[in-house]
Amino acid sequence: MASVVVDEHAFKHGLDEEEIRFAWDHFVRLVHRGSPDEGQILAVGWGFTGRLIQLVAVERPFGVLIYHAMTPPTHNALRELGLKWR
Rank of each mutant, 00 (worst) to 15 (best):
64 V>H: 06
41 I>L: 10
32 H>A: 04
53 I>Y: 00
50 G>K: 09
45 G>L: 04
31 V>W: 07
19 E>V: 15
73 P>Y: 00
18 E>R: 12
71 T>Q: 09
45 G>Y: 03
59 E>I: 03
86 R>N: 13
43 A>S: 12
8 E>F: 14
40 Q>V: 08
18 E>H: 10
83 L>E: 02
6 V>H: 01
21 R>P: 02
26 H>M: 04
12 K>H: 15
67 Y>L: 11
66 I>Y: 00
51 R>N: 10
1 M>I: 11
35 S>P: 11
74 T>W: 00
75 H>P: 11
39 G>Y: 01
53 I>Q: 00
84 K>N: 07
14 G>H: 13
49 T>C: 03
56 V>H: 12
74 T>Y: 00
62 F>M: 05
15 L>T: 03
59 E>M: 08
4 V>W: 11
71 T>C: 03
82 G>S: 06
31 V>F: 05
65 L>R: 12
56 V>P: 04
62 F>L: 07
14 G>Q: 15
73 P>R: 00
4 V>P: 11
12 K>Y: 14
63 G>L: 05
79 R>H: 12
1 M>T: 11
54 Q>S: 10
1 M>L: 08
14 G>M: 15
84 K>E: 10
35 S>W: 10
46 W>Y: 09
83 L>M: 11
59 E>R: 12
45 G>S: 06
57 A>S: 13
55 L>Q: 00
76 N>C: 02
38 E>G: 09
54 Q>I: 01
14 G>R: 13
57 A>Q: 05
53 I>W: 00
16 D>Y: 13
64 V>K: 07
